[in-house]
Simulated scan of single mutants.
Amino acid sequence: MIDFKNGSFFKLRPSADGAEMVAPILLPDENVVMSFKSVRDTVVFTNKRIITVNVQGLTGKKKDFSSLPYAKIQAFSVETAGTFDLDSELELYFSGLGKVRLEFLGNVDISSICRFISEYVLR
């Protein structure tokens, strides 16, 4: 599992290949809504959970998949990009896990991610 307590995830940018990476572990009625990638790692938002993929080793064949269900989110916060700080941040607080912090490059629409999470957390 990714050590979420030790720093934050690398800066994430939109990616189209996240669906392919998590396809083997998706449920039959689960769909990828959006995905983001850093240098090697990936974060995928589905209609049921957030899946983080930590690529390990020199060859990158070993991967660690962490499943973060929306139902376990107790609170979250969003920090938008500014004039000098061009990156945005999403902090999610999970029961039993603690805080998960994801940092996005400035061109990511963090407000749409916030609205998306709100749909599942605030039901």
Rank of each mutant, 00 (worst) to 15 (best):
residue 3 D to T: 10
residue 3 D to H: 10
residue 4 F to P: 01
residue 4 F to L: 10
residue 8 S to A: 11
residue 10 F to V: 12
residue 10 F to H: 10
residue 10 F to A: 12
residue 11 K to E: 13
residue 13 R to M: 13
residue 13 R to K: 12
residue 15 S to M: 03
residue 16 A to M: 10
residue 16 A to W: 05
residue 16 A to C: 08
residue 16 A to R: 07
residue 17 D to I: 15
residue 17 D to K: 10
residue 18 G to Q: 01
residue 19 A to R: 02
residue 21 M to T: 14
residue 22 V to G: 02
residue 26 L to R: 01
residue 26 L to M: 12
residue 27 L to D: 14
residue 28 P to W: 03
residue 34 M to E: 07
residue 34 M to Y: 02
residue 35 S to G: 06
residue 36 F to V: 14
residue 36 F to K: 03
residue 37 K to Y: 00
residue 40 R to V: 12
residue 40 R to S: 13
residue 41 D to W: 03
residue 44 V to I: 13
residue 44 V to F: 00
residue 45 F to S: 04
residue 45 F to I: 04
residue 46 T to Y: 04
residue 47 N to T: 15
residue 48 K to N: 12
residue 48 K to F: 14
residue 48 K to R: 11
residue 48 K to S: 05
residue 49 R to S: 05
residue 49 R to H: 01
residue 54 N to A: 08
residue 55 V to Y: 02
residue 55 V to T: 12
residue 55 V to L: 07
residue 56 Q to G: 00
residue 56 Q to E: 14
residue 59 T to A: 07
residue 64 D to N: 15
residue 65 F to T: 06
residue 66 S to R: 08
residue 68 L to W: 13
residue 68 L to G: 05
residue 68 L to Q: 02
residue 71 A to H: 13
residue 73 I to L: 07
residue 73 I to P: 08
residue 74 Q to T: 11
residue 75 A to W: 11
residue 76 F to P: 00
residue 77 S to Y: 02
residue 77 S to F: 10
residue 78 V to Q: 02
residue 78 V to N: 01
residue 79 E to V: 13
residue 79 E to Q: 05
residue 82 G to W: 04
residue 82 G to L: 12
residue 83 T to H: 02
residue 83 T to A: 15
residue 84 F to N: 14
residue 85 D to Q: 09
residue 86 L to C: 05
residue 86 L to K: 15
residue 88 S to G: 15
residue 91 E to H: 05
residue 92 L to T: 07
residue 92 L to K: 01
residue 92 L to C: 06
residue 94 F to D: 02
residue 94 F to Q: 04
residue 96 G to M: 11
residue 97 L to H: 03
residue 98 G to I: 13
residue 102 L to A: 09
residue 102 L to Q: 03
residue 103 E to I: 14
residue 104 F to W: 09
residue 105 L to V: 15
residue 106 G to E: 08
residue 106 G to P: 03
residue 106 G to C: 07
residue 107 N to P: 04
residue 108 V to P: 12
residue 109 D to S: 05
residue 109 D to M: 03
residue 109 D to H: 13
residue 111 S to V: 11
residue 111 S to D: 14
residue 113 I to C: 02
residue 113 I to K: 02
residue 115 R to W: 01
residue 116 F to A: 08
residue 120 Y to E: 05
residue 121 V to T: 12
residue 121 V to W: 09
residue 121 V to N: 06
residue 122 L to V: 09
residue 123 R to Q: 13
residue 123 R to H: 11
